[in-house]
Amino acid sequence: MLKQAIERLGNRTLQGVGRIGFAIRFFVAILLHSGTAFRRFGLTIREMYFSGVQSLIIILVSGLFVGMVLGLQGYETLQTYGSEDALGILVAMSLVRELGPVVAALLFASRAGSAITAEIGLMKATEQLSAMEMMAVDPIARVVAPRFWAGVISMPLLAALFSAMGIFGGYLVGVQLIGVDEGSFWSQMQSAVDFEQDILNGVIKSVVFGIAITTIALFEGYDAPPTAEGVSGATTRTVVTSSLAVLALDFVLTAFMFRGLS
């Protein structure tokens, strides 16, 4: 009984490690076959439409609401200490450092990541990828790499839009609705938010998240069993795995960036 349990654990571990190994080889293969994605940039642009432009609405609306909530809650807390002038700092710092990259990445994972997995998985299940191979066209170069680069380029833009929209939402609630002084809202924000420390690090985070999400989504699709359950299971796994990866990576990156190691 115990022996069986241990065996099962061992088996699971080996399988998991094997999959990680495959995923890393897959990632390296994408990088090595990225020539086409840039030489024929139209392919990448096309995928940017599907992963980037089509995520715009959810990103913009979510960003606005998150910023508005931050404005409300931040005001409630700050006015207890009589420092509601610092509302701009609170809204901008939370968005630029954390919420912008992380929430945008989570939304991207469920909006674009799942779509990528389902699309690649279906292409595999209907033998479109095999057909491409038989036509002497490498599916990694022609199908996978453009989607990868489209995601990596789109992610920081979406995160920046989320943050900008959130700050606008915080401004709407804080300044226009509640009546925090407009001058101190912006000037306090400007003096506290640093380009290198906060904005650049936020951009770096979102690029890393973009790499993680698209790699996971593409790998799950490429690796999906060619059946209906296989594709739907892979789609679910993409959302779960990439969300967890985003949060875990966020912790690691934050620890490195904001521990004063500069």
Binding site: L157, A160, S163, A164, M189, V193, D194, F195, D198, V203
Partner: peptide, 14 residues
């Protein structure tokens, strides 16, 4: 949006 963050929200404090 990136420019907005750089110029309006943050500043080149460094």
């Amino acid at each position: 949006a990136l420019l907005f963050l750089t110029l309006k929200v943050g500043s080149m404090n460094t």
